[in-house]
Amino acid sequence: MKYTKILTVLGLALSLNSQAALIDLTGQGYVTYGDFNSYSLPIAGINVPSSPGQISNLVVVATGSNGNPINTNFSGMDNAYSTPSGVSGSNFFSTGGTSDPSQVSSFFGDNAATWDTSLIALEAFLAGEDMVFFFNNNNLNGANLQSLAGWAQVKLTDNNGDEIGVFDFTNNNGAYGLVSEGGGGTFFGDPADYTSDGSGPIIGNNAGTDYVLSGGPICIDTGTTPPTPVSCNSPLADEGPINHNLGADNAAYAIVAPELNSLLKGLFDSALNLNDFTMSIDLRLGCDPGFGNPNGNVGDEICTGAVSGFGKNINNGFEQLFIASATFESPNTQIPEPGTLLLLGGGLLLLWRHKLIS
């Protein structure tokens, strides 16, 4: 009854109420980047097709595709941002530097510099499942050309614009490189060890940056369960390199924020008015001009990685970020009781804010 009423109010398709988990990530390995765990789909042996027709019923945050329905999301959230081709367009994309997409209908909490959704619309879409982000890496396949720099920040805010949770997908000022080659990220890390301060990314340089390297080939040691990413020069490397630049039609990564999902569950299970809450995504992909290419020159070494080995450019286009749901092992994260949410209301949300962004 609850979801039926929400769907009627929002005008969403009835299929949303039966949105089943797209994949099962239980037991799969992941690399932790700040608040997020990133799962390699090719290493896991999981295929997530992502052509426009195959993700048109999901929530698309950014895409290089044109036309409906992939560019059009559900009432209560932004439609998809348009990512550049990297060939005739920019080698860098930022939600803050691109026109805010339209909506099926206007909603409270929409911001000009981020992709936004009301929590009532997000709850209806997820229908009790945990949220997961999927990302396509669609660069050129030359050795240093396929890697791509990416950073993202997800915020939850209330109707006063106060932040109740901030979650970063970040290299945490680590080296710009593959996790198996000394780059940032921690295999089987703990997102609880990281706390966002709410600021934008440290751009830095190859020695230290908040931008995560996406798309490089990884070698693995299959003698562990799950397989462990290792240097391709390691004697333990018995499989690979495994490509992660899979193109427009297959997602390369599933990315999960356990603490974000726990906070969402607490809000969804409460009787608070979810129209008063917004989830916003600040997404940045490619060679940030702050790396030292103020003119956005696609040929600069810091962008191409021709010498250093790992590029940052968007150079082929059609990168996609979309939202679905997944099953995975429950994190050791406490979820507030619905009764406590009701009792304390805004005060509890301030406690969450203190925990997550202080």
Rank of each mutant, 00 (worst) to 15 (best):
M1T: 03
K2I: 12
Y3K: 13
T4W: 00
K5G: 07
L7W: 12
L10A: 01
S18H: 13
S18T: 15
Q19A: 09
L22G: 02
L25E: 06
V31Y: 04
S40M: 10
L41T: 05
I43V: 00
I43K: 01
I46K: 14
N47H: 13
V48G: 01
V48S: 02
P49S: 14
S50L: 13
G53V: 05
G53L: 08
V60T: 01
V61E: 06
V61Q: 14
S65F: 13
G67L: 05
G67A: 13
N68V: 06
I70Q: 02
F74G: 01
G76R: 00
A80N: 08
S85E: 10
N91V: 15
T95Q: 07
G96L: 04
G97T: 14
T98V: 07
S105A: 15
F107L: 06
G109A: 05
D110I: 09
N111D: 05
A112M: 09
W115Y: 12
D116E: 15
L119P: 00
L126S: 06
A127T: 12
A127P: 14
G128I: 02
D130P: 11
V132Y: 07
V132Q: 14
F133E: 03
F134S: 04
N136M: 08
G142S: 13
N144C: 08
Q146S: 11
L148N: 01
Q153C: 03
D158H: 03
T170R: 04
N171K: 12
G174D: 01
A175G: 11
L178M: 08
V179S: 06
V179C: 14
G185W: 04
G185Y: 01
P191S: 11
G208I: 07
T209E: 00
D210W: 05
V212G: 00
P217Y: 06
T222P: 10
G223F: 04
P229E: 12
P229A: 15
P229R: 03
N233P: 02
S234Y: 07
P235V: 10
G240K: 04
P241Q: 01
I242D: 02
N243R: 10
H244I: 12
N245P: 14
N245D: 13
L246A: 04
G247K: 15
G247F: 10
A257Q: 00
P258A: 14
L260R: 02
L260A: 00
N261D: 06
L267Y: 03
F268V: 08
A271M: 12
L272N: 02
D276G: 07
M279F: 02
R284S: 09
V298S: 15
G299P: 01
D300K: 09
G305H: 07
S308M: 08
G309T: 15
G311A: 11
N313V: 06
N313C: 08
N316D: 07
G317Q: 11
F318M: 14
Q320C: 05
L321Y: 01
L321P: 03
F322T: 00
A324G: 15
S325M: 07
S330N: 11
S330H: 14
P331R: 11
N332F: 06
N332K: 12
E337V: 04
P338G: 02
L342W: 03
G346V: 12
L351W: 08
W352P: 01
L356M: 10
I357Q: 06
